[in-house]
Computed example of a mutant assay.
Amino acid sequence: MEIDVKEASRRLGVNDSRVRQLLRAGELRGRRVGNSWAIPAEDVARLQRRGRRPGRPLAAKRAWAVLDLLEGGPAAWLSDSARSQVRRYLADLVDPGADGWLAALRGRSRVLEVVAHPAAIERLRRVDGVWPTGPSAAAVRGFDLVALAEPIPQFYLAEEQWPALSHSLALREGAEPRLVVRLPREVWPFAEGRLRGVGDAVLAADLLEAAEPRAVAAGAACLSELLDDWRRARSRA
Score class of each variant (00 low, 15 high):
residue 187 V to S: 00
residue 174 G to L: 02
residue 178 R to T: 15
residue 61 K to C: 11
residue 7 E to M: 14
residue 127 V to Q: 12
residue 128 D to L: 15
residue 29 R to H: 15
residue 36 S to D: 13
residue 150 E to V: 12
residue 184 P to M: 00
residue 185 R to E: 06
residue 96 P to H: 05
residue 76 A to Q: 09
residue 168 S to Q: 13
residue 162 W to Q: 01
residue 98 A to N: 04
residue 107 G to W: 06
residue 219 G to C: 08
residue 176 E to Y: 07
residue 89 Y to T: 00
residue 130 V to W: 02
residue 230 W to P: 06
residue 31 R to D: 04
residue 90 L to C: 09
residue 39 I to G: 00
residue 163 P to M: 03
residue 124 L to S: 03
residue 97 G to V: 10
residue 192 E to D: 12
residue 182 R to W: 07
residue 42 E to W: 15
residue 11 R to I: 04
residue 138 A to K: 03
residue 58 L to D: 03
residue 220 A to Q: 03
residue 37 W to T: 01
residue 237 A to E: 15
residue 22 L to W: 15
residue 222 C to P: 11
residue 99 D to P: 05
residue 114 V to F: 05
residue 234 R to C: 14
residue 211 A to Q: 15
residue 218 A to L: 05
residue 205 A to N: 09
residue 205 A to D: 06
residue 163 P to G: 04
residue 224 S to V: 06
residue 79 S to I: 07
residue 19 V to L: 01
residue 48 Q to H: 10
residue 120 A to R: 10
residue 202 V to Q: 14
residue 83 R to I: 06
residue 104 A to G: 14
residue 235 S to V: 15
residue 100 G to F: 01
residue 18 R to G: 04
residue 169 L to H: 05
residue 145 L to H: 03
residue 147 A to T: 13
residue 208 L to P: 04
residue 5 V to M: 02
residue 154 Q to C: 09
residue 134 G to F: 02
residue 225 E to N: 12
residue 181 V to D: 00
residue 234 R to N: 12
residue 55 G to P: 03
residue 183 L to F: 03
residue 3 I to L: 09
residue 223 L to C: 03
residue 172 R to N: 07
residue 135 P to G: 15
residue 30 G to N: 00
residue 2 E to S: 13
residue 206 D to A: 07
residue 92 D to F: 14
residue 103 A to F: 01
residue 23 L to R: 03
residue 211 A to S: 11
residue 151 P to S: 02
residue 80 D to I: 13
residue 139 A to S: 09
residue 42 E to D: 14
residue 48 Q to D: 08
residue 32 R to C: 06
residue 75 A to W: 04
residue 192 E to V: 12
residue 15 N to S: 11
residue 216 V to P: 01
residue 169 L to D: 02
residue 139 A to H: 10
residue 49 R to K: 07
residue 111 V to M: 08
residue 194 R to K: 15
residue 209 E to F: 09
residue 167 H to Q: 13
residue 42 E to T: 09
residue 22 L to R: 06
residue 131 W to G: 07
residue 152 I to H: 09
residue 117 H to W: 12
residue 172 R to I: 13
residue 234 R to M: 12
residue 164 A to G: 10
residue 8 A to N: 02
residue 123 R to A: 10
residue 40 P to H: 01
residue 147 A to W: 14
residue 3 I to C: 04
residue 201 A to E: 05
residue 209 E to C: 10
residue 138 A to T: 01
residue 21 Q to P: 08
residue 31 R to K: 11
residue 112 L to F: 06
residue 125 R to I: 07
residue 220 A to L: 05
residue 154 Q to K: 11
residue 160 E to S: 13
residue 156 Y to M: 00
residue 186 E to N: 07
residue 145 L to S: 01
residue 7 E to L: 15
residue 40 P to D: 06
residue 174 G to K: 02
residue 195 L to W: 05
residue 227 L to H: 01
residue 96 P to S: 03
residue 20 R to C: 07
residue 129 G to L: 05
residue 227 L to P: 00
residue 219 G to L: 07
